[in-house]
Design a protein around this nucleic acid. Sequence first.
RNA 1: GGACGCAUAGCUCAGCUGGUUAGAGCGCUGCCCUCACAUGGCAGAGGUCGAAGGUUCAAGUCCUUCUGCGUCCACCA
Length: 879
Amino acid sequence: MPELSARYNPQDVEEKRLKLWSEKKAFHAVAGRSSQGPFAVVIPPPNVTGVLHMGHALNNTLQDILIRYKRMQGFDAMWMPGTDHAGIATQNVVEKQIAKEGLTREALGRDKFMERLWDWKARHGDTIIEQLHKLGSSCDWERTRFTMDEGYSQAVREVFVTLYERGLIYQGSYIINWCPRCTTALADEEAEHKESSGSLWHIRYPFKDEPSQGVIVATTRPETMLGDTAVAVNPADERYAGLIGKIIVLPLTGREIKIIADDFVDRTFGSGAVKVTPAHDPNDFAMGRRHDLEFINIMHPNGTMNANAGRFEGMDRFEARREIVQALDDLGLMVRIEPHMNAVRRCYRCDTVVEPYLSRQWFVKMKPMADKALEAFRAGTPCIQPKRWEKVYENWLVDIRDWCISRQIWWGHRIPVWYDEQGHAFVARCEADARLQARAKHGKDVVLTQDPDVLDTWFSSWLWPFATLGWPIKNKDLQYFYPTAALFTAPEIIFFWVARMVMAGIEFMGEVPFKDVILHGTVRDAKGRKMSKSLGNAIDPLEIIREYGADALRFSMILNSGQDIFISKEKFETGRNFANKLWNASRFVMMNLSPEASGVSDFSQIDHAALDPASQWIMSRYQTSLAAVTEAIEQFRYSEAENTLYEFFWGTYCDWYLEMIKGRMDDINTQKTACLVLKNTLKMLHPFIPFVTEEIYSQMAGVETMLTLEAWPVPEAKYAHAGVEADIGMIVALVTSIRNVRAQWNIKPNDPVACVFVGPAATLERLRLNEAVVQRLVRIAGFRYEGSANGLKNCATGVAGEVAFFIPLGELIDIAREKARIAAEVAQMEKAAGAIAGRLANEGFVSKAPPEVIEKERQRMTELKARADEFNKALACLI
RNA sequence: GGACGCAUAGCUCAGCUGGUUAGAGCGCUGCCCUCACAUGGCAGAGGUCGAAGGUUCAAGUCCUUCUGCGUCCACCA
């Protein structure tokens, strides 16, 4: 058996295991191989531009725990990995790259730019996947998918065309969120509200007939006044009753606009009069429609003012704002300016202030799909955990709005629509189909051009659970693994992604794509701030892996995962220390194992009848822990499962059990128990810390063993003692060992005993032998204490009558420890029993508490008393 | 503006349907390099469970209000 070193070194072990897993394709799942059936999880595909951060580390560790656990339970556990093409993000990266060469994408041209993008993908696209490997993620790597794979792209086109045919996709001119920096439309979810301080400008719009008079309007975006085509007031507002229909001359432009009445206007806000800019505000747009107003677009797509802005043409929108405010002030029309907090929408990719912009885009009609998703949700799928997110999810589905899916960028799935010269649109799965349609319409071949835009990245992501499995081809994998079991993700993308996947799943597969949705917290720094590069507070998981090991990273992360997760570097010491403890305890056990014992693999190989009581006790504790861990994992309570394992292994197995059996390791059944309980504990720990557990296990077994392919331990009811019984077993173990020592040296209970302790005084002090044991002995017989002496360091030496004897120090440690422990427990039990007695004496309790509670309490009291008696008896036996 | 969450030891958090006299880890204090492990062992200090009311025989746990922090959603110009 190989010697293990005293300190666990994760780097070598992890590298070795990763190599093995990769060579053996350990995580590849085949449809229909297991009788247990499928258990599939799809990874939330990280952006190809991504580098591993703590959020990924958490998300993937959670998934890995589940998938390894299920694989050990014998399911065809399949974890689908892959990456997302991340439209705007990736395009931004490559644009920055070419900017260093002094190039822009426009200068390069679409084809060349796309080449650069694919080139970038080929070079850097696997970075995040490799990093996920290092974490120990047991993904089915052979299946790795990318949202712009050929097959996947086909699925995207199929979905677009099908939805179009079902009347769920339409094109139209609406106010959408426009990012002037990215020069593209954004979905509502991609334009994030952020509070910022601005101003509210109150401007007087003069009447045509009485230029000295006018209405005062308030606005947060004064530059949009150039596109105003009306002023609106509430029809019920008496202040303006006589003014409806009156003509106003719009300052700076001279355009004549009317005062209109509309219910939308809030009488209590500002002056009660609103400037109406139908081309630059969604509400105004709606009013413009209602009142048949003119739509005047005053901006270029890049946010500069266009020809409609008159003398402000060419200025950036914010520059124009300053100039216009100044100009109005010069005209004496700026009534007042007040500070105003408002929520400005910003591009989620580049943080640029989004402009509500009128443009022609493609939309998905969401209501019919959302209704189906709602119906499914109310019937119980998917099950969202924690429960508090259910309402958020449901509300979004109820208040669903149409989804703008076209993007004016180049990296992505090109919209499968072709136009003829007259502008007729032909929606088709491929260009050839479009040609056929065009020919049918025109009776001849015509020139077609494809829509230049691409689809929103989420328009491909929402197909992830089935498109990765080969849809629209109905192959074996798709049939077997769909729907998947669970989805782990951050709550931020519940709308972006989760809800839409549900809709697509129902629409195209007829089934919700996953049974459970587990929403986990955000990883934050010690101060509670989100980890981000710009804040400089990010902890790099790769650095942690280098320094502490991937196991340590995983272990500490899960241990700390409550709601949000607050992490500082020191936290990872816990995981590192645990792995080291595991390593050393195993080393100790292995050093004491005979070859026969090290091969033990089943509890039936242990002679239970011949087992020492301490081993019986650890078996019982092991059973309890196994049950608790299994239950916690089933309920996705990984932190709790891990904590239970930590307690069991460190606090019970190492601190108590290994100490107790130190003097008894020559017993084959003890060895077997120590070994088998350890092996099974390694299995239980494996989903959490796959590297170190597998390495130790392999060394114990003497052959390379892939733990994730080993069976998850099953409870062995016959070895399980319940609560009291187990503890009594423990005491009996110790009492027996004392008796054995006495018998060995032929000491009778009342024999005069002389005792000589040898060893450092401090050690004896620490062991509390001087108080607890020695004094008792002094009373029995003569005592002489020789203080610290060299030589027989680990023995207590004594003389019984004429016979000298040695008691192994380990035994005495056990006795002293256990005595103290029992005494403390007895005190606690007596206290508790007293408290219950008091309660039972309370009239209110007896008369009003439910009978079953009273009965329970009474039983508990009896039990506690009985147990305290047992403990006291045991205590009396301990010398 | 709407919805939700959190507040328990110096720090990070458990405490699951109210029912032992509230727990763990880290940190701190003291003693130990005892031959698996100092990334370790043993012992110890430290809490009126955010505040105020209420329900109950019984409240960290349920209800109301308040305070502080956080998250998500949102078309008051």
